[in-house]
Design a protein around this nucleic acid. Structure first.
Lengths: 323, 323
DNA sequence: CATACAACG
DNA sequence: CGTTCTATG
């Protein structure tokens, strides 16, 4: 359980992948063009068609995780015809983490039914303080050993920003880090309270098994991770405070930015603001991550981005982890 | 000024009506079907294609007034491609009154530009207490002698519900009577304050010349004016209080319901709730009126309804007044 | 620019 | 059901 072989996947409940379907945006591929305002020598744009390793073959056991900030799951399902099945037919993931579902608790049961084909296990957090705000989910073929809603230890849980699923060989966390907001109103809370509490929680979990944090960390770590670093020095998501917090609370504590480790010098965004058609011109940010415990960092076969999947201002990211 | 001949209209600025265009909803005509829940002997549905008198000919001078609760003018202009020009190309009105424009004062200038082709005179009221709420307009080929914003005499003007334009031979009022609301929260205000203040104001104006009140009076006068009278005895717009207020403050004061005078026993609705596809099934209300001073009641050539014009939950109404 | 709520109709 | 507003991103 929680594992599969590349060839035979008998231990995991499978959906019938009858056809490969196309859920891409059917456009040229702007993300293959480097539009960075301060490019450094040797930087190249991420191209998922050329930069992903070949699939694992033979008897290799692995698990395929995905994550997506959907910016409103109801809208995605309704007007954009998304379903986990469609994404599954293309990507065949084992576990899908979502952020910004914007569900209310009363919506969850109905949504669950419409999403789960082939994925019997799904878990949801909702904001109870602000309706239609925030919210995360984990949708899985594999039944988790346990699930924890929220940080579980603090008073940061009213906004439904964190969900933990325990699998056999790792904890998976779906996290939606608070945006620091216009005027950086919430910067201090986010950095000193949230990030630090989350980092500590992860270290605590790590005592029993490796930890994987995925989701929207609402921070572009370095200049390479944002289209216009100079113009965004005081923008929420690229302040020194947030970048240092990411380093202090997560990276320096031994959680590895799997995409950056695999692709040093590669410009890969996961978010493009809706305004000014930033996606068309690839003016983006890398805000979504898979951070993995050092102990399993070398088991990452592929940490990737799927910039051609639309329907949100973020695109999905994925991780193939050898077991 | 303020008059025109049926044949030559030299005195009024004309728009170039180059083509007759179709702005109808291109559907069957449900309003020609009687769906009344308590029909009385002899009632027949209003059919604008068979029940409008022939146009005035020869040297008859007349003015053509229209009125429409547009339920959000920006939405109408944007997603529904409305323009006064289009309505004018079909209906060739001289003056158009609007209600529920839902404009903010800051929107007016821009909207004005997009609406006025051929109609150089336009006047607008906006709610200043609730943004995007209520609001009326008068758009005219004929330059009014004067314009008054609001009742001008009371504290009922913060919601932009009334606009008066003085023409040579009559006052024209574009009015949007307060809805009594869910739970009839505002019934008392609407009946004892608003209706009575408006009636008095009209009597005051009438001392100098005839008065025409048009707009959404938010009241179906009699059982004939509402699809399901029994089911709506305590619904806003059909309570005894509102119906009696219409009688007391307007009709008994000498203002004539021009449509009912012309069409006794005719079921003609001007409003169909969006819910349950009421328009398709002609489950409507007659809420929009031209009330005219008794002194000019016999000058009404035609008081009509245009139920095929969509884009709002109300349809436009019209009045051809001989001068 | 887009997805949510809430108010109002 | 549908248009607005506001908050949030």
């Amino acid at each position: 359980q929680g594992e599969r072989k590349a060839s035979s996947r008998s231990s995991i409940k499978q959906i019938a992948v009858t056809e490969r379907i196309d859920i891409s945006m059917n456009e040229p591929e702007p993300w293959t063009v480097l539009t960075h305002k301060k490019p450094q020598e040797g930087w190249i744009p991420y191209n998922p068609r050329t930069m992903r390793p070949p699939p694992l073959t033979g008897d290799a056991k692995f698990v395929k995780l995905m994550s997506w900030n959907v910016n409103g799951l109801r809208g995605l399902l309704k007007s954009k015809g998304f379903s986990a099945l469609k994404l599954a037919q293309r990507e065949d993931f084992d576990v899908l983490s979502l952020q910004e579902t914007k569900l209310q608790e009363k919506d969850v049961e109905a949504i669950k039914q419409s999403v789960i084909e082939g994925y019997e296990n799904s878990f949801w957090t909702c904001s109870v303080s602000k309706l239609g705000y925030s919210g995360t989910a984990i949708i899985s073929r594999i039944k988790p050993l346990s699930v924890r809603y929220g940080l579980g230890i603090s008073d940061h849980d009213s906004e439904g920003r964190l969900l933990t699923a325990e699998f056999e060989s790792f904890y998976l966390l779906s996290g939606y880090v608070p945006n620091s907001g216009d005027g950086l109103k919430r910067l201090s809370y986010r950095v000193t309270q949230w990030d630090s509490a989350l980092g500590s929680y992860m270290k605590e979990l790590e005592k029993s098994k490796p930890v994987i944090l995925t989701g929207d960390l609402n921070c572009a770590h370095q200049e390479i991770d944002i289209h216009d670093p100079a113009g965004n020095r005081r923008s929420a998501g690229f302040t020194d405070e947030e970048r240092q917090s990411l380093e202090k609370n997560f990276l320096s504590k031994g959680f590895v930015d799997s995409f950056r480790k695999q692709h040093p010098g590669v410009v890969g965004y996961t978010y493009w603001g809706y305004r000014n058609g930033c996606r068309k011109s690839n003016k983006g940010w890398r805000l979504d991550y898979f951070l993995v415990s050092e102990s399993i960092a070398d088991k990452v076969h592929d940490s990737y981005i799927l910039p051609d999947i639309g329907g949100s201002d973020h695109c999905p990211i994925g991780l193939v982890l050898k077991l």
